[in-house]
């Protein structure tokens, strides 16, 4: 029974990915055939066509997600520290959940007016700012679990040992917060990467991210190209997951060895 549950768990993760890959390689897959009539790279050749704009969408998505996750990771680190040791910590924490209670799309509707009058709708910068406003509170929530009184005491100890603020940050806080920083970057990247509603609304169709492209293919009922776009869509998160896992594994391993 235990073994069966494990197999089911692995299948639930692996099957959609394999299915997606098969769908992106398939052609003429009519019901009730179990496999497509043709399996080749013809759909993938679509990527090279100048009118496909899939590669362009891929790099726009990557650019937006990297900007948002770097901004949130860096700014969130310092802001969360201030909030964590503030007497109104819990009030700020409740406020940080508000964008998720309202949902990002509703937040986008609220932002839209201000984005229109500032001329930010339909721009790369506008989408970055909008996604930042949604992801930033999430970054704060992640970091708030990391800051605690013990860490504060370690920081104070470094100061009394003669460390300046910069030295304390560089030699104490940064090495101790590696995992929290990696976690925040990874999570925010995922939020930004898969964001659709807000990006579509603020981007007004002019900023075609990969997620927006997938939905367009789905609307067009082009499941093969949608699957192809999905393959591109899951690639960066998988690479990030691998890097994240290797990093955590490396940290654990070095702790055990030394």
């Amino acid at each position: 029974m235990k073994k069966l549950l494990q197999i089911l768990f692995v299948l639930s993760i692996v099957f959609p990915v394999v299915f997606l890959l098969l769908l992106s390689l398939g052609r003429r897959w009519a019901y009730p055939n179990i496999l497509p009539a043709e399996i080749n790279f013809e759909n993938w050749e679509f990527l090279q066509k100048s009118d496909s704009k899939l590669f362009q969408a891929f790099f726009i998505s990557l650019g937006i997600s990297l900007c948002v996750s770097i901004l949130v990771t860096v700014i969130g680190f310092f802001v969360s520290k201030t909030i964590a040791f503030n007497k109104f910590r819990n009030v700020y924490l409740i406020l940080a959940y508000v964008p998720y209670l309202l949902s990002p799309v509703i937040m986008a509707v609220i932002f839209q007016y201000y984005f229109i009058i500032t001329g930010l709708t339909g721009t790369f910068l506008g989408v970055i700012i909008a996604q930042f406003l949604i992801a930033f509170p999430f970054g704060i929530i992640i970091y708030l679990n990391f800051w605690n009184t013990k860490l504060k005491s370690i920081e104070e100890l470094s100061l009394t040992l003669g460390g300046s603020r910069w030295q304390t940050f560089k030699y104490v806080l940064l090495p101790l917060s590696k995992n929290a920083i990696a976690l925040c970057f990874f999570q925010v990247f995922l939020i930004s990467w898969f964001e659709y509603g807000l990006t579509n609304l603020i981007g007004t169709g002019k900023i075609r991210t990969l997620t927006v492209s997938v939905f367009n293919f789905v609307i067009e009922a082009n499941i093969y190209y949608a699957a192809l776009a999905c393959c591109l869509l899951v690639l960066p998160p998988m690479i990030l997951l691998y890097i994240n896992k290797s990093l955590m594994f490396f940290v654990e391993k070095s702790k055990t060895l030394s």
């Binding site: 005491s153 104070e156 100890l157 100061l159 009394t160 003669g162 090495p175 030394s258």
Partner: peptide, 21 residues
């Protein structure tokens, strides 16, 4: 500032830097 006082404050807990031997 604390870093200029040359006074070291030791806590009840040893508080060694966990990333250093």
């Amino acid at each position: 500032k604390p870093q200029k006082r040359n006074i070291v404050y030791l806590y009840q807990e040893a508080l060694l830097f966990p990333h250093l031997n």
